[in-house]
Design a protein around this nucleic acid. Structure first.
Ligand SMILES: Nc1ccn([C@H]2C[C@H](O)[C@@H](COP(=O)(O)OP(=O)(O)OP(=O)(O)O)O2)c(=O)n1
Ligand SMILES: [Mg+2]
Ligand SMILES: [Mg+2]
Length: 1143
DNA sequence: ATCCTCCCCTAC
DNA sequence: TAAGGTAGGGGAGGAT
C-alpha cells in the first residue's frame, strides 16, 4: 500500500463527497444570484479556506455547513462501497491498483466535461471525488481556465496542491494509466505561483517534486563511492542533465535554469528502477511506478513549473534577492517591520530557524505516519534493544559544498552575510571551520575573527528540503520505525536486529545517503535513544560508532554533562556551581537530591542519563500540541497601529498554519519581547537585545482557526500588556489546546439536520474549568465588528477521533440515534429540516435503505418531491435564490417567527414514525424551551408547493446573514424590493455606535414579557440601561452604570465588569440589600447581552461570565443574577452551537 | 491531586 | 547590515 493510500486511510470515515454538480463556482460570490444551492455551498465552503478576504470567512459556520458535513459523513461508507465495487469491476489496466487509486480530485468551477462526468470517471476507476475542498483529502484540484479574478482565490486555497485541467482525467482514462499531471497544470496558476511568494511557504505541502528531477536523475547514473571524489562525480555527469551541479552557485544560472541540478548529479540508481524522487513522488501522488513521466518534456521549456510547493521558497528567494538592494537605504530601520509591508513573508522566507522549525510539519505531510502503528516502546528498555541515531554532517554546509569540491577541506560556513563586521549568524560550519572554533549561532564577525579565511556560502533551503527528503526516503526504506528529529537527523528502532546487525544497517544507510545526496552522515548505534545520540557525537564526522551496553558506563564516566541531551548552558552552569562537570560526578548525587534541586522530572532525567538510562521509545509520533508563529527580529514599531497591523499578519500566519495542520485551538497565547529599561541598542543588527519576555493567554470556549477570532483575541491580549509599542522587540502568537479541525470546524453548526442525522453523542465533552488571566482592563483597541466565531457542535463522525475529548463518544451511525419524543418537543434545534432544505442531489445518491429511512421521516414526501422535481435541475438556481431572498426577507422584516404548522406537523410525524430525533442536548432550565423554540425557521411548507431553498439560507436566521461576507450581504439585500431593503438593512448592515453589528433581537418577542425595561437595553450609545441604572435607587446599579463610562464607553460588558473588579470589594456592603428587582434588572441586561452577542462574539460572553463568576463569591447580588442567567446562557449556547458551555 | 498560566530551557 | 523560529518538556505558584 502506498503512502498515499495510507494517508487516505487516515482521513477515516469522513471522506467527503456527494453526488453531483455542486462544485461549481467556488467562492464566487458574484455568482450568487444565479447559482443554485450547491454553488452557494461551495462558495461558503471555500471561504473558510480562502485567505484573501477577511470578511468572507464567517459564513461557513451555518446550518448549511453542518448539513454538508452530515451529508458527507453519512455518504462516505456508501461511496466506498460503490467505488470499490465499480472500480474493481471496471479497472482494466494492468496493475492490480485501479487507475485513479489514491487520487482524490476536487473540481473547481465550471469544467468540460462537467464535474458530474469527472466524478463518474473517478468513481469508475478507483479514485475519489471530493465535493468540498479539504487539504487533507484532495490530491488534485481540477479546474479549467479561470478569470483572473478567481486565480487568486484558487491559489490561496490550493496552496501547493496540483491544479490541473480536466483533460488530465480524460487522457488518463484514455491511456488507461495515470498520466503525470504536470503537463496539465493550469498555466495561470503555474505562473502565478512564482510571482506571489507565499506567506506560509514552508507549510506548503510538497505534493510535487520536479518530475524533471526524477527523470533526469534516472538518466544520470553515477556510482559514488565513499572514496570517490566529488570532482569525479561531476565529471561523470551525464550530458543529458541539462544543468549540472556546477551551476549551483552561479546566481545568474541558478535563477532561471535548473535549481534542481545538483539533485541529479548525485542520483545513483544502480539496479534500482526507481529513484528516490520517484519514490517520493509516488508516495505523494500515488503515481504508479510504471508511469512514464511523460510530463518531463513540459519542463524543458519551463523548468520551474514544477515548483508549486515548498520549492517556492527558493524560487522566490532567488528571484527576489537581486532586487532587494534597491529597497534599502534611507532609514536605518528599512529592514524592520516599519520598512517593509511584506516583512513577515520575507522574513520567514529567509529565516533558517523558521525553516528548521517548520520542517517537521512538512515532513508529516510527506511521510504520513504509516509506521509505529505498533508502539511497543518497551522493548527498548528491557532486553537488547537496538537504536540507530543518524545525523547529517554539518548539514547546511554539506549540501552547499558537495558541488564545490574545492571547498571540501577549507573552513566553510553557511551564513547570510560575509561581512567581517556583521552580526549575521553562522548556521552551520564544516569540520575544518570547527577546528577554528566556528560554531552554529555565532556572529559572522566572530567567526571571521576566529578564522579569517573562513569561506561563507549562502543558504539553499530548497536543496536542504530535497536532501532531507532523500535522507528520509532511505531511512524509511530500511526501517519502519523512524523517529524524525529534524531535517537532518533521526532515530531508527531496529530492536529486532541486534547491535551488530544494526551497525551494518547503519553503514548501508550512510552509504546510500552519500550516494544519493553527495553528503555524508554519521551514525550512532546503541541500546537506547540516549546512547545512540551520544554515539553519533563520537562518530562525527562521516563515521559511525557503537556503544554496547557494557561500555556505557565507561563512555559516560568522563563525558561532560553538557553533552547530555537536555542539558543546555543553564543546567550546565547550575551543575558547574555544584562542581559537577562529568557524568561520573553527576552519578554521585542521589536522585532525591537532584530532584530537590532541579525538580522531580528533571532530577530524574539527570539521574538516569548520567547512568545511560533512557526509557524513551523510538518512533512515537505524538499529536501536535500547539501551533504558533513568532518574529523576534526586526520588530520595531512607532505607533499602536504599526503593532496591530503586524499582529494581524501574525494571526493570518497562525490561522493558515492551523489549517495546514487541520487543527483548531482554544488557548491563544500572545508573547511579547519587551526591551528592558536599561537595555541599549541590541548588539545584533535588528535584534531584540536584552528583553523581558511576557505572555498572556486566553482560553475560549470553542476551538478556532479563524483568523478573525485570532485577531480579536490577540488584540485583547495585546491590551493586557500595558506597554509602549516602541519597547516591543518581538511578537509571537501561539494556539494550543488543539482539537481536530475535522470535528470542530465541521461540527460547528447548530443545524437541525446535523443533530437530527447524527446521534448527537459527540459534544458532551467536559470543558474543564477554562480560565484566563485578567490583568488590567480590556483595551478598546478592538474597534472592529468581526462576527467571527468558530462555532462548535457535535464532532461529527470521523475516522480519526484521536482528538476527541475522552468523554465524547464515538462516531454515530445511521439508525442509532435515540431521543425521546419529550426531549424532541423541547427543541426546535432538532427539527427535521424541510424537504426544500435538503440537497436533492445528495438525497438521490443515498443508498436505498437510507433514502427510505429519510423518506419515512418525511412521511413519504421525499419521493414525491423527487418525482416532481425530476429533470428540473436547471431551474433550481434561479428559484433557489429568489426564494431564499423571500425567506430572508420574511425573517428580517417580520422579525419574529411564528411556527409554521406544517413544520410542527413534520416533527410530530417524525416522532411517530421513527421515534428518531436529534438528541436534545443539555437544556437545563425551563427557559430552554422558550429559547429552543425560537429557531427562526419560517418558510411555510404549503401543500405540494415545495420551494427549493438554498440549504444555506433556508434555515438561516438573521444572525447568519450577518456572518455572510459583506459583499454577499449587500448582494442579497440589493436584490430585495427597495422598501424592504431599507427596512432590513437597518438590522443587518448598519452598525451601532460601538461598531458591532446590531442584532435584531427576535427572542425578546417571547422573553420581553418579564423585562422591566422592555427590549433593546443595549441599543443606543450609551445603551439604554446605563441611564436607567444611573437614575435607579440602587447603589450597585449606579455603580455598574458608572463603570460603563469608566471602562471607556466601549459598550463591551466585559470591559465594564473589568472596571468593576477594582471597585467591587468596596461595594460589598452596598450589595447587602438584595432587592429582587435589582437583580432582575441585571439579569435583563445580561440576557439581552447574551442575545446580542451569542452569535457574533461568544468569546465576549464567555469572558463576561468568567468575570461574573468571580463576583459571585463576593456578592450575593451577583451570585443570584449569575445563577439566574447562567441557564439561559447555556441554553442559548446549546441552541447556537449544539454543545455544553461550562464556565 | 490536578489543572491552569506564565514563564524558562532545550533542541534542531 | 540581516532575516534570533518552533515546539515540547517542565517547574513555580495559584485556583479549585
Ligand atoms: N543553531 C543552529 C543549529 C542548527 N542549524 C541548522 C544548520 C545545521 O546544518 C542543521 C542541522 O543541525 P545539526 O545540529 O545537525 O548541525 P550540523 O548538521 O550542521 O552539524 P553536525 O555535523 O554536528 O550534525 O540545522 C542552524 O541553522 N542553527
Ligand atoms: Mg547534523
Ligand atoms: Mg541534526
Amino acid at each position: 500500500m502506498s503512502f498515499n493510500s495510507s494517508r487516505s486511510a487516515n482521513s477515516g470515515g469522513n471522506l467527503k463527497r456527494s453526488n453531483d454538480s455542486n462544485s461549481n463556482n467556488i467562492n464566487n460570490n458574484k455568482k450568487l444570484k444565479k447559482s443554485n444551492q450547491k454553488t452557494l455551498g461551495m462558495a461558503w465552503g471555500s471561504n473558510s479556506l480562502s485567505s484573501s478576504k477577511s470578511s468572507s470567512r464567517k459564513s461557513n459556520f451555518t446550518d448549511f455547513g453542518s448539513y454538508m458535513v452530515v451529508k458527507n459523513g453519512k455518504l462516505h461508507d456508501q461511496f466506498n462501497a460503490e467505488a470499490t465495487s465499480s472500480s474493481l469491476k471496471d479497472s482494466s489496466n494492468s496493475g492490480n491498483k485501479p487507475l485513479f487509486h489514491g487520487v482524490s480530485i476536487f473540481v473547481d468551477g465550471f469544467t468540460v466535461p462537467s464535474s458530474q462526468e469527472l466524478r463518474s470517471y473517478m468513481l469508475k476507476y478507483g479514485g475519489r471525488f471530493e465535493n468540498y475542498f479539504s487539504r487533507s483529502r484532495v490530491t488534485h484540484i481540477i479546474c479549467s481556465n479561470l478569470p483572473d479574478s478567481k486565480v487568486k482565490n484558487i491559489r490561496s486555497f490550493s496552496r501547493g496542491l496540483p491544479v490541473v485541467k480536466p483533460t488530465w482525467v480524460l487522457d488518463s482514462v484514455a491511456a488507461n494509466k495515470l498520466l503525470n499531471w504536470v503537463p496539465y497544470q493550469l498555466e495561470q496558476l503555474v505562473n502565478d505561483v512564482h510571482k506571489q511568494p507565499k506567506l506560509s511557504a514552508f507549510f506548503a505541502p510538497k505534493t510535487s517534486l520536479g518530475l524533471q528531477d526524477a527523470k533526469t536523475a534516472a538518466n544520470c547514473k553515477l556510482n559514488l563511492e565513499e572514496g570517490c571524489s566529488l570532482k569525479d562525480a561531476n565529471s561523470q555527469e551525464s550530458p543529458s542533465c541539462e544543468v549540472g551541479e556546477s551551476t549551483e552557485y552561479s546566481p545568474e544560472l541558478k535563477e532561471e535554469t535548473c535549481i534542481y541540478g545538483q539533485e541529479k548529479v548525485f542520483e545513483v540508481t544502480e539496479e534500482e528502477p526507481i529513484s528516490a524522487e520517484q519514490l517520493l513522488l509516488e508516495s505523494l501522488m500515488a503515481e504508479p511506478s510504471g508511469s512514464n513521466f511523460n510530463g518531463g518534456e513540459a519542463f524543458k521549456s519551463s523548468p520551474c513549473k514544477s515548483s508549486a510547493s515548498a520549492n517556492d521558497f527558493i524560487g522566490d528567494q532567488s528571484k527576489k534577492s537581486p532586487s532587494s538592494p534597491q529597497i534599502a537605504t534611507s532609514s536605518n530601520q528599512c529592514n524592520s517591520t516599519l520598512g517593509d509591508p511584506n516583512f513577515v513573508e520575507n522574513y520567514f522566507k529567509n529565516s533558517r530557524l523558521h525553516f528548521i522549525g517548520t520542517w517537521r510539519n512538512r515532513y508529516r505531510k510527506r511521510f504520513p505516519s504509516l509506521p509505529s502503528g505498533v508502539k511497543d516502546g518497551n522493548s527498548a528498555v528491557t532486553n537488547g534493544a537496538s537504536v540507530i541515531h543518524i545525523d547529517m554532517d554539518c548539514f547546511f554546509v554539506s549540501v552547499i559544498i558537495r558541488s564545490r569540491p574545492e571547498l571540501q577541506d577549507k573552513p566553510v560556513a553557511v551564513c547570510h552575510s560575509d561581512n567581517p563586521r556583521g552580526t549575521a549568524e553562522i548556521s552551520s560550519a564544516n569540520y575544518p571551520a570547527r577546528d577554528f572554533g566556528v560554531r552554529a549561532g555565532i556572529f559572522v564577525r566572530d567567526a571571521k575573527s576566529l578564522c579569517p579565511h573562513l569561506v561563507i556560502v549562502p543558504y539553499n533551503f530548497e536543496a536542504y528540503e530535497l536532501v532531507a527528503d532523500q535522507f528520509y526516503q532511505i531511512l524509511h526504506k530500511h526501517c519502519n520505525k523512524v523517529q524524525a528529529v529534524s531535517c537532518d537527523e533521526a532515530f531508527l528502532d531496529v530492536s529486532d536486529q541486534g547491535l551488530e546487525e544494526a551497525e551494518h544497517i547503519a553503514s548501508v544507510i550512510r552509504q546510500e545517503i552519500y550516494e544519493a545526496t553527495g553528503c555524508t552522515a554519521s551514525a550512532g548505534v546503541a541500546g537506547n535513544v540516549l546512547m545512540a545520540r551520544l554515539a553519533t557525537r563520537t562518530a562525527k564526522p562521516n563515521g559511525q560508532f557503537l556503544i554496547p551496553p557494557e561500555k556505557v558506563e565507561g563512555f559516560l564516566d568522563e563525558l561532560p554533562i553538557k553533552t547530555l541531551p537536555g542539558i543546555g548552558h543553564v543546567l550546565d552552569d547550575k551543575l558547574k556551581r555544584l562542581r559537577i562537570q562529568t557524568c561520573g560526578q553527576l552519578r554521585m548525587i542521589t536522585k532525591e537530591s537532584l530532584q530537590k534541586d532541579f525538580g522531580s522530572k528533571t532530577g530524574n532525567m539527570l539521574w538516569n542519563y548520567s547512568r545511560g538510562i533512557d526509557s524513551r521509545p523510538v518512533g512515537v509520533v505524538q499529536e501536535t500540541k500547539s501551533v504558533g508563529a513568532e518574529v523576534n527580529w526586526g520588530v520595531r514599531f512607532n505607533t499602536l497601529q504599526d503593532s496591530q497591523n503586524f499582529l494581524v499578519k501574525l494571526c493570518h500566519e497562525v490561522s493558515l498554519r492551523l489549517q495546514g495542520c487541520g487543527v483548531q485551538g482554544r488557548t491563544i497565547t500572545l508573547k511579547l519581547k519587551k526591551k528592558r529599561k536599561d537595555a541599549g541598542e541590541p548588539t545584533k543588527y535588528m535584534g531584540y537585545g536584552d528583553c523581558e519576555n511576557l505572555s498572556h493567554a486566553m482560553t475560549i470556549p470553542i476551538a478556532t482557526n479563524d483568523v478573525d477570532v485570532l485577531q480579536r483575541i490577540s488584540k485583547q491580549l495585546f491590551g493586557y500588556f500595558h506597554l509602549d509599542v516602541k519597547e516591543i522587540r518581538g511578537i509571537g502568537l501561539q494556539v494550543s489546546r488543539l482539537e481536530n479541525a475535522d470535528m470542530t470546524s465541521q461540527g460547528h453548526e447548530r443545524s437541525s439536520l446535523r443533530s437530527w442525522l447524527s446521534s448527537a453523542s459527540g459534544n458532551m465533552e467536559e470543558r474543564s474549568h477554562p480560565s484566563m488571566e485578567m490583568t488590567g482592563e480590556v483595551p478598546s483597541l478592538d474597534g472592529q465588528c468581526s462576527a467571527g466565531l468558530t462555532k462548535h457542535g457535535n464532532p461529527n463522525s470521523d475516522g480519526d477521533s484521536s482528538r476527541l475529548p475522552k468523554s465524547s463518544t464515538g462516531p454515530s451511525t445511521w439508525g442509532h440515534t435515540n431521543q425521546s419524543p419529550a426531549e424532541a418537543s423541547l427543541s426546535r434545534a432538532s427539527t427535521l429540516p424541510q424537504i426544500c432544505d435538503l440537497d436533492m442531489g445528495v438525497i438521490e445518491s443515498l443508498p436505498p435503505e437510507i433514502f427510505s429511512e429519510i423518506n419515512d421521516l418525511y412521511g413519504g414526501k421525499l419521493s414525491e418531491f423527487l418525482k416532481k422535481n425530476d429533470g428540473k435541475d436547471d431551474k433550481i438556481s434561479d428559484s433557489v435564490i429568489s426564494s431564499s431572498r423571500r425567506e430572508l426577507e420574511g425573517e428580517i422584516i417580520k422579525g419574529k417567527a411564528p411556527l409554521p404548522s406544517e413544520e410542527i406537523h413534520v416533527e410530530e410525524t417524525t416522532s411517530k414514525n421513527k421515534g428518531k430525533q436529534c438528541r436534545f442536548q443539555d437544556y437545563q432550565s425551563a427557559s430552554t424551551s422558550a429559547v429552543g423554540s425560537l429557531n427562526l425557521h419560517t418558510d411555510p411548507l404549503s401543500g405540494d408547493k415545495y420551494e427549493l431553498m438554498p440549504t444555506s439560507l433556508s434555515q438561516v436566521d438573521i444572525s447568519i446573514l450577518q456572518q455572510l461576507p459583506k459583499e454577499l450581504k449587500v448582494d442579497i439585500l440589493e436584490s430585495l424590493p427597495a422598501h424592504r431593503r431599507s427596512e432590513c438593512s437597518d438590522s443587518t448592515l448598519e452598525k451601532c455606535p460601538h461598531d458591532e453589528l446590531k442584532v435584531e433581537n427576535f427572542k425578546d418577542q417571547l422573553e420581553g414579557a418579564e423585562s422591566i425595561f422592555g427590549k433593546s437595553l443595549w441599543s443606543g450609545c450609551p445603551p439604554e440601561w446605563v441611564d436607567k441604572f444611573e437614575v435607579s435607587n440602587n447603589m450597585m446599579l449606579k455603580l455598574i452604570a458608572e463603570m460603563y463610562y469608566k471602562s471607556g464607553s466601549t459598550g463591551f460588558l466585559s470591559s465594564i465588569l473589568q472596571s468593576l473588579i477594582s471597585v467591587l470589594p468596596l461595594s460589598l456592603d452596598a450589595s447587602n440589600d438584595v432587592d429582587d428587582n435589582v437583580i432582575s434588572s441585571l439579569c435583563d441586561i445580561l440576557r439581552q447581552y447574551i442575545d446580542l452577542k451569542i452569535k457574533s462574539d461568544m468569546e465576549e460572553i464567555y469572558i463576561c461570565f468568567l468575570l461574573l463568576r468571580r463576583f459571585t463569591t463576593k456578592s450575593i447580588f451577583f451570585l443570584e443574577a449569575y445563577d439566574r442567567v447562567l441557564p439561559y446562557l447555556q441554553a442559548s449556547f446549546s441552541e447556537n452551537y449544539g454543545g455544553n458551555l461550562n464556565i
